[in-house]
Each structure stands twice: as structure tokens, then as C-alpha cells.
Design a protein around this nucleic acid. Structure first.
Lengths: 191, 191
DNA sequence: CCATAACTAGACTGATCGGTTTATTATAAA
DNA sequence: TTTATAATAAACCGATCAGTCTAGTTATGG
């Protein structure tokens, strides 16, 4: 019997894609083994506590990626550049609307109860990081908060509707609309 | 052994609530019987084809409700009044953000494939009905379409974030923001 | 080259899955 | 009443579930 060797990071990425497609409850161990090519032995080697550990590690992985690619730049770098990067990163990460937000999907059913603090932390940090960048760019606190909330809400809604309608174009249009609104708010204070 | 008698409409409403909480895959027959108080005998009496029929009937039920309460008014009644009613209906139906959109939740995982036309039809009609009302109120076609899309996207996104953050207030704020934007567009043409 | 550890394949287990069947009880027409 | 039908309860079914275990194979460090 021939053997394929996986790295844990590969396993995380592969399993994440299955959760994205089937949801937490919908992803059975057998569907995970079938779709990833990882045997149960491998999966329980990497994730001794099974599905729940898989999901937890995947979410931590996603969160860490967003922190380095988006949140920290928003929090620390030049705000306008970081915001511009955010739109790029968002569009790329979600594959122009073809990829669902796993954390958003987990939030909708009782999966949320298992991972509530991770889910809450992710969205809270996104909104706060964006609001902070807007404020550093000169936008007033309350308007910055409103705009940031609106942006993250819009991204999540667009992902839902892109899937529901089977039409990615709504994602691009929404991102464009939201970006325009932020640009407008930024434009009003010092060019 | 004592017996409780249910109506089918009761069964639909009760099971719908379980799907809303657990998702389609997460809702097992035993969890449905436990939470609704309906026995398997009753459930399979009302829904001979099991879970799939339950979900299909629930979605048809939701769709019919939205058609009479929201879509038809938007399509046929005085547009400004119908739009005002839409915000009321939306806020009431989703219990100020505490209740998830079942159809939106189904859209995110592979449940979508089972019910794609129903899911797509629901959101398409919502957007088109709202866009139509805006046009009849004097808003240009392309702007009406944009605004309608933005509104439905925003509602779905707000529902996701309300659950994710465990904070309903974001739903009310989003609805207020969206209503304001529509009012502004309506205000620009003939008061 | 060997020894040990890291890793993988897949058979296996008890529990639970969606769904069926049988038996019983309520309802309502005759 | 009687009788037919609608509705409910629960035992039961094969399939699949998450998770375990064993027997291996491959990588590595000496």
C-alpha cells in the first residue's frame, strides 16, 4: 500500500475547504476523508480531538491569516494604503464571491455556540481595525464606526447573496459600492 | 399513553424553528422530535418524504408569507407606503436580528444545491420587487437596482453579524442606515 | 544501516442517523 | 353505536456517524 505524506498545514487547508462546502454538521468524517484524501488515521493523528479540533484549528488559522494580512496593517500601517489593501485582500480571499466565509457560516447555526468567542473576536477585530484606520485618516469616531460596521456587514451579506443567487457579480458590485463610500468619507477630510 | 393533536401548519412552524437553530444538516430527526414534541409518526405523516420535504414545505411557506406581506405590496401598492411597510415587516419577522434567515443560512452550505431554485427565487424577487417600487416612486432604473440590491445585502449581512457578535443592535442600526439611504434617494425626486 | 518516531491505511465499534412499520388512539361520518 | 380514517407513539431497520485501534510504511537521527 502506497502512502502519501501530508503536512499539518496542508491538512488544515484541505479540511477547511470541506467545511466551507458542507458546513460543520454537513461535513462527516467520511466526506472529509473522501474529499481531502486524508485517511482517518492521518486526521486523528493531526487532530486527536476530531472534528471540533479541526474546526478550532482552522478558525485559528483563518484568524491568524487575517491578522497579518489585514487587521495589523489596518491597525498599524498608513491608513489609506491599508484600507486599499483591505479591498484587494477581501476580494482575493473570498475569490470574488465564490468562496464563503467559514466564520460567517459557523455563526448562523448552533455551531456558533461551540466557537462563539473565536467568531465574535474575528468580526469585532475586523470592524475595530477598520474603524481605527478611518479615524487615523481623519474620519470622526462615530462615522468611522458606522462605516466600518457597514463595510463588514456588506461583505458578509454579499457573500450570502452571491451563493444564494449563484452569481458572483453581486460581490464585486457590493465591494465597489462600499469602497466608494469609504473613499468619499476619506475625501472629505484632507486630500 | 396520552396524545397531542397537531395541525400541519403548526408542524411546519415548529420544525422551521429547529432548522433555524441547528441548520439543515444539524437538525436530526431525533432533535426535531425532541424540540417540537412531534413524534416520528406525526412527522412522517405530515411529511412522507422526510427532512427534505419538511425543508421544502417550510421554504414554500416562508416564501408565500413574504409574497403576501412584502413582495406583492412592493409590486402593486403605493411604493412609498410599501417600502415603509417593508422595513417594519423585516424588523418584525427577523425579531430585531434575533432570528436568522433560514433561506440565507441554507444558501451557505451544500443545502443550497437541494433547494437552489427556491433560494434564488426568494432573493431575486425581493430585490426586484424593491427595485420596482423604487422606480415607480421615481428613482432611475439603475439606481433603483443598486439600492435594492444594497438593502437586501445589508439585511443578510446584518443578520449574520448580529448572530456572530451576539448583539442584536447591529441589525437595527443597519436597517436604519439602509432606510435612510432609500429615503434620501426618494426625497431627491418629488416630495 | 539500524532504531525510533512520525505518519498513514483501513478495519472495526457502539451510537446515532433518516426512515419504515406496526399498533394504538382520537375524530367524525354513518 | 359502528366504522372508517386521520393522527400519534414507539419499536425497529440498515446505513452511516464519530471515533478507536492495529498493522503497517516512511522519514530521521545516530
Amino acid at each position: 500500500m502506497t502512502r502519501t505524506v501530508f503536512e499539518k498545514s496542508d491538512a488544515i487547508a484541505l479540511v477547511a475547504e470541506v467545511f466551507r462546502e458542507l458546513g460543520y454538521e454537513g461535513a462527516s468524517m467520511s466526506s472529509i476523508t473522501a474529499r481531502t484524501g486524508l485517511s482517518k488515521g492521518s486526521l486523528y493523528h493531526f487532530f486527536p480531538d476530531g472534528k471540533e479540533e479541526m474546526a478550532a484549528e482552522i478558525m485559528a488559522n483563518i484568524d491568524a491569516w487575517f491578522v497579518t494580512q489585514m487587521f495589523r496593517p489596518l491597525e498599524e500601517d498608513e491608513p489609506r494604503a491599508a484600507i486599499a489593501l483591505m479591498w484587494e485582500t477581501t476580494n482575493t480571499y473570498f475569490r470574488s464571491g465564490r468562496r464563503v466565509c467559514l466564520i460567517g457560516a459557523f455563526a448562523l447555526d448552533e455551531t456558533r455556540d461551540r466557537f462563539s468567542s473565536a467568531i465574535q473576536g474575528y468580526f469585532k477585530r475586523w470592524i475595530e481595525a477598520l474603524a481605527g484606520a478611518l479615524m487615523r485618516a481623519g474620519v470622526g469616531a462615530s462615522e468611522a464606526r458606522e462605516l466600518a460596521e457597514e463595510a463588514v456587514v456588506g461583505i458578509q451579506g454579499a457573500l450570502t447573496l452571491a451563493r444564494a443567487l449563484g452569481d458572483d457579480s453581486i460581490f464585486g458590485r457590493t465591494l465597489g459600492r462600499l469602497r466608494e463610500r469609504l473613499m468619499e468619507a476619506l475625501g472629505r477630510r484632507g486630500l
